[in-house]
Each structure stands twice: as structure tokens, then as C-alpha cells.
């Protein structure tokens, strides 16, 4: 099968598509022109840079640069998750980074070695893109879950304290909010499972098919990705929420005065 190469000039031609939202924003006064322009340039520069780095990593074929880039991706995911959840402090960033990194690594390791059986163990063609998808899923789940928890605790302060007043522990008092936060974190992943192949052809599979892989194999990989992502989303969001919920209470089951941001 022929793989059509895309030149830099082709990319610039494709950027014409970005003119559509730009002019809509301008015409309807949405005020998004600057973000669209910066976004268009960033995606171009960032992805070309990543492509260049991946090229070098594939050529070197050594574990150190693979884990190096994964560390950078994990740190970015942790920072962005905490920032999007509006809880970006040194401790929460560190916590989010740790949770996202460990949970993604745990589930991916299972998939890499027990399901696909990759060799060598750091095979960058599998490890980097699949870990990247896992980190992205974990980042979104942690951000959504942590934000929902923060809003839930703030909005339900009176209800939490009313439960504490009748003898609930802090864990019992906040349990409905924890459940709701977890549900919110999981819903996008579950929706993805429901609509896969019906509404959209998932990106990984699309990439493989356009890259020349047999669709029968590509779909199997995509199923693996979906299961892996759902596992990561569940594990990362519940771990982050359970770790975060402790900061809202004292050891004497008192809701802190400021659920500090």
C-alpha cells in the first residue's frame, strides 16, 4: 500500500482549514483569533519537534532516551492536570505527576508485556505513543476528578458538616462527593467505549490504517488501547481523588476553613 508523504508545504496548505474558525471567530466577535493563531503555530512547532525527537530516539534504540521523554511527558501531564483542576501547588502538582506516572506505567506495563509482548522492553515505537495516550487519559481523568471534588466540597460544605455533626467520619461525610467526582472522571472514557467505531474511528486505529497496517490488526490494537485507557482513567482518578480528599479535612474530622486553592 502507498503511504502518501506530507511535505511542509502540504502542511501549510492544510492550515487553510484553520482559517475557517479564525474568520468565524472574527465575524462573530468570539475573541478567539489570538488563541487560534497561537494554537495553530504551537501544534505545528510542537509536533514537528516531537517528530524530530522520536526520529532520533528510534534511531538510537536505547532505554535511557525513551524513559527520559516519558518523564518529561509525565511531568507535563501532572502540571497540566493540577492547573486545569485549579489546584496547582507544588504538593498537588507532585502528587498528580506521581499518580499519573505510576498508574499509567502499571497498566501499560501489563499491556506491553502480558498482552502485546513487546521486545525489547522499551521498544519506543510502542512504549512512547501508547504511554503518551495513557498519560493523556490519566491527565484528563485526574483534572476532571480533582476539579469535581474541589467544586463538590466547596458547594456542599453545609451538607458535609451536617453529616459530621451526626457522627460521620470525614470519609463518610464526603463519600457522595467522591463517588460523583469519580463518576465524572470516568464518563468520558465510557462514552468513548460506547461510540467507538460508530460515531468516530479512533485516532490510533486511523493512524495505523493510513500508515498501511491491516485494518484487522489496527482494530485489535484499538480495542487494547480502549481497555488500557479505561483502566488507567479509573485507577488514576480514584487514586488522585482519595489522596486529594484528605487535604480538605483535619485528622479530627473537621472540614478545613478554606478548601484552599
Amino acid at each position: 500500500m502507498t503511504v502518501y508523504e506530507i511535505s511542509i508545504l502540504d502542511l501549510l496548505v492544510c492550515a487553510v482549514a484553520m482559517a475557517i474558525p479564525y474568520f468565524i471567530s472574527r465575524f462573530l466577535k468570539l475573541g478567539l483569533e489570538r488563541d487560534l493563531l497561537v494554537g495553530s503555530i504551537r501544534v505545528f512547532v510542537q509536533l514537528l519537534a516531537v517528530g524530530y525527537i522520536l526520529d532520533k530516539i528510534f534511531a538510537v534504540n536505547h532505554a535511557a532516551p525513551v524513559f527520559g521523554i516519558l518523564l518529561v511527558m509525565t511531568a507535563n501531564a501532572g502540571f497540566n492536570a493540577a492547573k486545569r483542576a485549579e489546584i496547582a501547588h507544588a504538593r498537588t502538582i507532585l502528587m498528580a505527576t506521581g499518580v499519573i506516572g505510576v498508574t499509567t506505567l502499571a497498566v501499560c506495563a501489563f499491556v506491553f508485556y502480558a498482552v502485546i509482548g513487546i521486545e525489547p522492553y522499551f521498544n519506543p515505537r510502542y512504549v512512547i505513543p501508547m504511554m503518551g495516550m495513557g498519560l493523556n487519559g490519566a491527565m484528563n481523568a485526574v483534572a476532571i476528578g480533582a476539579r469535581a471534588l474541589d467544586i463538590g466540597v466547596r458547594d456542599n460544605r453545609e451538607r458535609i458538616e451536617a453529616a459530621l455533626c451526626v457522627g460521620a467520619t470525614s470519609q463518610q461525610a464526603v463519600a457522595p462527593i467522591v463517588r460523583d467526582s469519580l463518576r465524572q472522571a470516568l464518563i468520558p472514557a465510557i462514552n468513548g467505549l460506547m461510540t467507538a467505531g460508530i460515531v468516530q474511528l479512533p485516532g490510533f486505529m486511523t493512524g495505523q490504517i493510513t500508515g498501511g497496517v491491516d485494518p484487522q490488526i489496527a482494530v485489535r490494537y484499538q480495542v487494547v488501547i480502549f481497555y488500557m485507557l479505561t483502566g488507567i482513567v479509573a485507577l488514576s482518578s480514584i487514586t488522585a481523588i482519595l489522596l486529594l480528599v484528605r487535604r480538605y479535612f483535619t485528622s479530627d474530622h473537621q472540614l478545613r476553613e478554606f478548601a484552599a486553592n
Partner: peptide, 20 residues
């Protein structure tokens, strides 16, 4: 023990709160 004390000293708050 704080949980036991909250049983022994019951607080009724100003704003009514009911649980689902």
C-alpha cells in the same frame, strides 16, 4: 474521641440541611 463527642454534644445548624 471527636465522633463520640459529636453524639454527646449535638449541633443544629442555622441553615436546614437534608440529605438525599
Amino acid at each position: 474521641p471527636v465522633i463520640e463527642m459529636r453524639h454527646r454534644i449535638g449541633l443544629v445548624m442555622q441553615k436546614p440541611v437534608v440529605f438525599p
